[in-house]
Write a protein that binds this DNA or RNA. Sequence first.
DNA 1: TGTACATCAGTGAACGCGCGTTCACTGATGTAC
DNA 2: TGTACATCAGTGAACGCGCGTTCACTGATGTAC
Lengths: 231, 231
Amino acid sequence: MWPIEIGARGCAKSAKRFAMSWRKGGRDGRGYHHGNLREALISAALDLIGQKGPAGVTFAEAARMAGVSTAAPYRHFRDREALLADVARQGFEKLSAVLENAWDGGRPNATRAFERTGRAYLGFAREEPAYFASMFESGIPLGSNPQLQASADRAFSVLREAAEAAAAGAPEGRRPPALMVALHIWAMTHGIAALFGRADGPLRTIPMPPEELLEAGLLVYLQGLGLGPDS
Amino acid sequence: MWPIEIGARGCAKSAKRFAMSWRKGGRDGRGYHHGNLREALISAALDLIGQKGPAGVTFAEAARMAGVSTAAPYRHFRDREALLADVARQGFEKLSAVLENAWDGGRPNATRAFERTGRAYLGFAREEPAYFASMFESGIPLGSNPQLQASADRAFSVLREAAEAAAAGAPEGRRPPALMVALHIWAMTHGIAALFGRADGPLRTIPMPPEELLEAGLLVYLQGLGLGPDS
DNA sequence: TGTACATCAGTGAACGCGCGTTCACTGATGTAC
DNA sequence: TGTACATCAGTGAACGCGCGTTCACTGATGTAC
């Protein structure tokens, strides 16, 4: 599993080096079969997104980076869109893991865990801009791919769970719908990430880190729900 | 001015029709000079964005839609990016006008005017998805183009002004920084627009209109600032 | 008012390039017996 | 354990296509005199 991670994070050439070293357990350049082309293509696509955005991803270039012929990708993906959808799916799964880890069952209290989860979302957008772009800016409709949809739903369900816990702490009688709270938090977090938190140039520079902006925003919002900072 | 608007809103063929009818004041197909090619190309680019997203915009296709040769666009735009930047600039200017109109000087009170402004932002995202995509999803760095930057700043300044007014209404002693309020509101509004308010398929379907989600979110947030619904 | 001329905004043909896609093929792998 | 064979995952050559870009050109427009 971990070689994939390394491939996904490296520079343009890392995908090819990764591909080569993977072949037949390290015998560079040997071996007719690639052995792990599917993941190598995903890794190449991530590099390309990082360099040129989702529009810059082509089958031909990805194949070149993986060190195979231009016809090889067709063994694994129907077309360019299928490749991008798989990248996005992986991205949602990584995001789910990151968020679940940050939420940590709502310890020590909902507010603190909430902030941690929001920060994790921003951290993901900042550290994995390629994944983030594939998920939200590649123009792939989620509905077209059940697996992709399921992965996205799983990521959202973490926010949903967090919102349930937060809503439960609200004063009796004015308990807000948890779904609504989850959507508000998601929207604010996503808005901050998309507008100010991108590593590849924010839309507008702001006089504070995105994390602090989000933390302040969450506090104001939770305050508005009647939730103090310790609930 | 208005023929541009019509061209921008029409279907794929409207750009060409618009281009033709504009020539020499209506003498269809006559005239060596187009007369308004620059705007016709922008209009064509909008149609293409609407059909295929910002990545689907090409010089060649835009020229074809405008009814000119593929070399003609070079008289008006250095390259594809310059064309897209101009589309985005127009978009920001339209958005500025829409927001200013909705804010209406903060009448009758800040909260009401705030909600109206947020709705206007959502309305823009919904009714002008092509402009919206060119502004936020085309991958053009704002900083690369001073005019574009200025237009974007102008749009934001409306939100900034609204936030000033809202912050001024907060209780003595816990008056929040207006810039922060503006950024929070922008982020939540933009997040809702980007995630749920797109005409071309939201990321997730929600059980209420985006406008209501935003209205509720704004109310909770302003409540958290210590601002009641009538302040 | 007419004319000459500079400038502007187009034409259309041409070119190289990279991408998508298909094809018959072949080396490697796994498995039945 | 060895062998035959089916299947899998690649090759590499080829093709058509559309895009970006350049070029010498030409029709239309505006203006100086």
